[in-house]
Design a protein around this nucleic acid. Sequence first.
DNA 1: ACCTGAACACCGTTCAAGT
DNA 2: ACCTGAACACCGTTCAAGT
Lengths: 250, 250
Amino acid sequence: MPYTVKSRKAPTVQTSAPRSPLSRARVIAEALTLADQAGLDGLSMRALAERLGVVPMALYKHVSNKEELLDTLVDAVIAEVAPGTVDGGWKAQAREQLLAARRTMLRHPWAWRAIETREAPSPAALDHMEVMIATLRTGGLSAPLVHHVMHALGSRLWGFSQEVFATGPQPTDPGIAAQAMEMMAARWPRVLESAMSTLHQQGSAVGPGCDDETEYLFAIDLILDGAERLHDAGWSPAARSDGAPLVTLQ
Amino acid sequence: MPYTVKSRKAPTVQTSAPRSPLSRARVIAEALTLADQAGLDGLSMRALAERLGVVPMALYKHVSNKEELLDTLVDAVIAEVAPGTVDGGWKAQAREQLLAARRTMLRHPWAWRAIETREAPSPAALDHMEVMIATLRTGGLSAPLVHHVMHALGSRLWGFSQEVFATGPQPTDPGIAAQAMEMMAARWPRVLESAMSTLHQQGSAVGPGCDDETEYLFAIDLILDGAERLHDAGWSPAARSDGAPLVTLQ
DNA sequence: ACCTGAACACCGTTCAAGT
DNA sequence: ACCTGAACACCGTTCAAGT
């Protein structure tokens, strides 16, 4: 028995399989499920070691440090993205690829924070970009236009739109909600109007009737549609002399 | 002398003014300059306390905890955004407001990471949104359209576009760069082509000739232009029954 | 009443000592 | 040769003791 559990807490139930020797693959796999269960903050080297029934230092045999572990996890998550093939031209295909990334990210809600802090694209990330760029080029868009559109897509490439603010729990007491609404109506009337503007007709409750997914799709479509329009109009990269808009055609 | 410096390190030169009593304003101000100098990771309660010549616990008199301190710092930074008034209609005005946010964010490079982790918009954030929404509504855009466009803008509202990957230092050795390029050309040819596509003509070096600012401007313009086009075509929010695109007009 | 030293419960990582 | 206990240099925060 190469490893012994050394923990002050009562030893928990053994993890499924009989104790196999620690390996890089086992470290990565356990880190992934730990992150899925406990979030990125719950993923500490010490917690991970304990789950593997190992002293923290043992991890450093298989992973050079925590940053490298995160690099590997991000690569693994992006590699999960599995877009289908759809009819409807390059825009529909690009849309499917973006939605496939979103499906993956919904399975690993912690991943966006890890992705954001990476310093270089992993192989799986480059693969994903390669497919996306190829799709846009297939539509006939020029390389510079594609380059800009990729930047405009930003984090949506990886399946998440950088939410303006993490939407916390809303007040359930209608009295409090009404009071908050009055305050907002007085000081930020436009914000309130905008937030309320997509309420579903049949909805009785307060709160936006517009889910994250609708916003995600709208942003994708706005950008892809804008790209198509520029391409159709024969857009090419302009020398940036003044502060003139970059996409408006004169 | 109400506070005494208690530090194992040799006491450093006194900060400018003679020791004034600790106050919330002084804590906030010092936290801001510490973040500007040392980044978000350098901003710890302990480091902040030492700069103020105070024991860490003294901070908790003026700030309830670190999260509340970060809330306050984010509010202060967003409050710095000072857009000018420009001619050229609502799109030009919106553009100026976005660029003003960007100017502020370039002064406080740590801020984006703090903003991203906030759970609710601060008063200054709501003020900024209010002004932005009002500008878009002035252009005649409907409330639901504005709502979607705000989401499409995402983090650009706060002056940063979620960069795909933090661009680390590039290899300076031309041999290494060439070798890396060959590898990329073999495995990710489209990515390489896209990255190279905006190279300036006169540039002899490798690396994109396209700065962050150009990408930022392009994304803004793509989104604002798309919004104007939808508005001109009489766009209104569609019932989302199937998976059809949300912005394409039939 | 006000302030603070020591402590608690954590981090990631190093390194010498043990088997 | 392999593994690990103890330690280092940090965190944010609590709390009882000191003035």
